[in-house]
Amino acid sequence: METITVYDIAREANVSVATVSRVLNDTAPVRASTRQKIIAIIEKHKFQPNALARSLVNKKTGMIGVLFPDSSNMFFPEVFGGAEKAAQKLGYTLFLCNTFSNSRRESEYLTLLCERQVEGLLFMGGRINSRDCSDALVQELENIQKKIPIVLINGTLPGNPCHRVKTDEFAGTQLIMQHLIDRGHRRIGFLGGTAETTTTLEKLQAYRQVLAANNLTYRKEWVRLGDFSMSCGRKLMEQCIALSERPTAYLCINDYVAIGAMKTAISHGMRIPEDMAIAGFDDTQLASAMNPELTTVSQHSDQLGQEAIMILSKLIQKEKVKKQTVLSPALIIRQST
């Protein structure tokens, strides 16, 4: 079947292509009789305007690019879910890119998204959580931002060139540490994360600050880094159980590490929280699905995504927006502490 174009519609209606375009996009008045004739021809041929072609005229694609680091960690899809709900209400479609925190993949996706003429970008993880982000990677985003607005979620870059929306992870760590202390724990360890990520360093700083404020000793052997996975939690807890003097409670970098640690502790016959308390961070859906249910900190993942889209939408419309939006975390007390 031959493809019908806007030129065919114009030829059959004996009008200009510009007139057909005005009817399709409702951008200017068209005589009622002419409009009805054009609409009748469109319906007869079941004509559907090419979205890309229309975007070239309007300079609007209705697309927003989203880069995030790990689809297997439920926190990021939950943030994306909030962003998608807000985007749909505003008429945007999200173009999702899983970067695996690989800077080369990030650059490839950034190039692709710019070629697709997205109207804005949301960025999570990877370089914006790197302790030592290279000048070249920072410059790449700065160059893109001259043409396309960018909003960072829970991250930043040297010089703070981009708008940000974040949850106060330092305050969240303070909340959950104080909760463990109020439960009577004096020996508290820390599990997971990497020394190369700013989120780990921020939480470790808060962890040490709360220990000091409560006159509790920081013990290097009670802090074990690794990564952000369940398998990391399992491995690190095996190491901790072998300690001659071990903590009575552990704060983990996220829910995944906490769940891995809890499974290993239980497999060794330990009761949670009677023998050892374990707390996570993020309040992903898995936290309440565990037995015992996991005490954690909510980052309001859904709200994070929605706020990011609302800010980005305003930037796309060239409205003034404050550089940083900070959400307050919430302590979620469950059975594991």
Results as ranks from 00 to 15, higher is better:
L90R: 04
E293Q: 15
T156F: 06
L56I: 10
L180Q: 11
F76W: 13
S134L: 04
S101E: 12
I41Q: 07
Y109C: 13
G172M: 12
K147I: 05
V20Q: 07
F80E: 01
R334S: 09
S55L: 07
A289M: 15
K235L: 10
L204D: 03
R104A: 14
M276W: 02
L141Q: 06
R54G: 15
R208H: 09
V257A: 05
E106H: 09
P69T: 09
L94M: 09
I148K: 04
F228W: 13
N214Q: 09
N215S: 15
M124V: 08
L52D: 01
K146Y: 04
R334F: 09
K203V: 06
L312G: 03
G82R: 06
I272Q: 11
G233F: 06
A51M: 10
R246K: 15
H268E: 12
V210N: 00
I241L: 12
L243K: 01
G189V: 03
L180F: 12
Q306Y: 07
N143L: 15
A32D: 13
R104Q: 14
P329L: 04
I253D: 01
Y7Q: 12
G172H: 09
Y7L: 04
L211S: 10
V66E: 06
Q178D: 07
R224A: 10
N215H: 15
M1E: 06
H300D: 14
T284R: 03
I150D: 06
L122N: 05
L331A: 04
D8Q: 03
T61W: 11
A277R: 08
L94T: 06
G189S: 02
I266P: 00
N102L: 08
N98D: 13
A51H: 09
L56V: 07
R104I: 15
P273A: 14
S298P: 12
G189K: 02
I188D: 06
R31N: 14
L331Y: 04
A206R: 08
F281Y: 14
L67N: 12
V15M: 05
E12P: 02
A195F: 07
S107Q: 15
T5I: 05
V6F: 08
G260F: 03
G233L: 06
S72D: 11
E106M: 08
T167N: 15
T197I: 02
I272A: 11
P77W: 07
D282R: 02
A83Q: 03
F228V: 07
E12L: 02
L121I: 10
S298V: 11
T3P: 00
V6L: 15
M310P: 00
G120L: 10
V138C: 08
G65C: 07
Q117N: 14
L112I: 13
L216K: 03
G260E: 04
N102T: 11
D275Q: 10
P292W: 11
C97V: 11
S71R: 01
R54N: 14
S33D: 15
L191K: 03
H185K: 08
S267F: 00
N58M: 08
